[in-house]
Design a protein around this nucleic acid. Structure first.
Lengths: 195, 195
DNA sequence: GCTTAAAGCTAATCGAATTAGCCATGGAGG
DNA sequence: CCTCCATGGCTAATTCGATTAGCTTTAAGC
């Protein structure tokens, strides 16, 4: 019996892919083992169990998503950055629904859980996008929460098939971003818009 | 052995309550049976199984939520209606996180699934709120999707403990609604704002 | 008071996760 | 080249939750 040459990272990656393909809820140790050409108990040599596996997938997802948003917004500002970040996030969720679901379901297990910095980095990337709007310090937290809520909600509903006709979902997304952009511009205290 | 006097509706209600208390993922036939003072197999005389139970809870949730939003918006218009609907939805999700999760996880099983009209009624209530803004017909679908995304996302993140300091989550919600209200007012084509 | 469908129960089955314990692989050191 | 042993894979066994089968009691309607 030749070895499969597995490692925690490879098992996690395969699990994440499986979750994307079948749905997070369908992910099981048995299915993953089969996918890797190995018997179920063998997986326990690489990950602690199903809970540990899903947690690793969650960290992977948050890290990838954070990177995607950061990369997409490089060199952009204001509306451009907002659009880029939003599309990056939406695209990621559509391409990796299982991973994203894992990321949402996960809860930090302790103060040194890698999930925390991964999540923080994603938040920091979104916060950076908002910074360009020059909001009041007190508005920043609200704007960030709004942006998160909106992107999370939209992507989640879309992936869940919550929107009827697939057509013009793209338009709806753009429309929504536009409204938010306008709103943030108007909120901006410094600009000479209303002065 | 005296009878427990159960019925599908009572079992569903108890299951929903259990889901709210422990989390949707923790809901199990065994726990529910214990809660009802009955042995697990007895539940199968009232519901088809765990899948059927969760689906019933989903229908219950969508129905209750639709009613809550409808009731909250009665006699209100524009900003008032928007605020009332949003708060009603947020409150419902906070008070019934398990039910709401069930409602989101559920997928219609066929064309005559009661989940469909229940969901439609909720959407209709939200659409009614937007109607007051007198948007272009083509903008209505976008605005509705935005509203859903935002409310769903915010409530979901809040319940999941996604926002750091619990403080001023209330403020953030109000701030968000305000920005949306402003945006919708501005989008309104008829008004004499920019003319 | 008798009949019978409904509602409970116990026992058994099934599937997925996990654990225990055994064995082969293959790189490191001789 | 040969040996050692940590690693990674395997089979067997356990556990737990869902579900099914089949029996029994309740209690509603006559």
């Amino acid at each position: 019996m030749p070895r499969a040459g597995l490692a925690p990272a490879a098992v996690t990656e395969a699990g994440a892919t499986l979750a994307d393909e079948l749905g997070f809820a369908q992910l099981s140790m048995g299915l993953l083992a089969e996918r890797l050409g190995v018997k179920t108990p063998s997986l326990y040599k690489h990950v602690g169990g199903l809970a540990d596996l899903t947690h690793r997938i969650a960290v992977l997802a948050m890290t990838e998503l954070g990177d995607a948003v950061r990369d997409a917004t490089q060199g952009r500002a204001d509306s451009d950055a907002l659009t880029a970040a939003a599309q990056a996030m939406r695209t990621y969720v559509k391409e990796h629904p299982g991973r994203y679901a894992a990321g949402n379901a996960a809860r930090p297990t302790g103060p040194d859980d890698p999930l925390i910095p991964a999540g923080d980095r994603l938040l920091a990337s979104l916060a950076a996008v908002l910074r360009g709007y020059g909001l009041d310090r007190s508005d920043e937290i609200h704007a960030l929460r709004m942006l998160r809520s909106m992107l999370h909600g939209f992507a989640t509903l879309e992936v869940a098939g919550g929107f009827q006709l697939d057509t013009d979902v793209e338009d709806s997304f753009t429309w929504m971003l536009n409204l938010i952009d306008q709103g943030l511009q108007a909120t901006k205290p410094s600009r000479s818009e209303a002065g």
